[in-house]
């Protein structure tokens, strides 16, 4: 079996890994959110790649042609649409929570925020 036949899916997996590594390695909350967004986009790329069929066009009926052989799979497109909307919403909520944390602790470093939180709890 040819290892590179699914090159789009492989690229999506590498992107997912890059996002996950960013999420784990960075202390800055904004960078963690960027890593999260990269993971989201990797999944959209994967879903879009699953719906693609070689040599067919987008699922918009042209000249009344309504045969299965003419168009790609429309279902992953709808799923990606849902995913994009949810990812935008989640990113907005995460960023607003980060802004609230910054207003209170004046730092974006998650370790410093945890330390300050613990100090507050002890008082």
């Amino acid at each position: 079996m040819d290892f590179l036949q699914n090159y789009v899916e492989l690229a999506a997996m590498v992107l997912f890994g890059i996002g996950f590594t960013t999420l784990l390695l960075h202390k800055n909350m904004i960078k963690k959110i960027i890593g999260f967004s990269i993971m989201d986009n990797a999944i959209f790329l994967f879903l879009a790649a699953k719906g693609y069929i070689e040599g067919r066009t987008a699922p918009i009926v042209v000249d009344g042609v309504q045969t299965v052989e003419a168009y790609i799979n429309p279902i992953p497109a709808g799923l990606v649409l849902t995913g994009i909307v949810v990812s935008v919403s989640v990113t907005a909520v995460m960023l607003s929570l980060t802004i609230r944390l910054y207003r209170r602790y004046h730092t974006l470093d998650i370790d410093e925020i945890t330390a300050l939180c613990r100090k507050e709890g002890e008082e």
Binding site: N6, I53, G55, P59, Q66, V68, A70, P76
Partner: peptide, 23 residues
Amino acid sequence: AANLPPYGDPDNPVNNEVSAHYI
């Protein structure tokens, strides 16, 4: 991912009767 059905193949299991009905 390398062991998934080949990219862009019309005989993949995702291209089932549901998408055929929609089209």
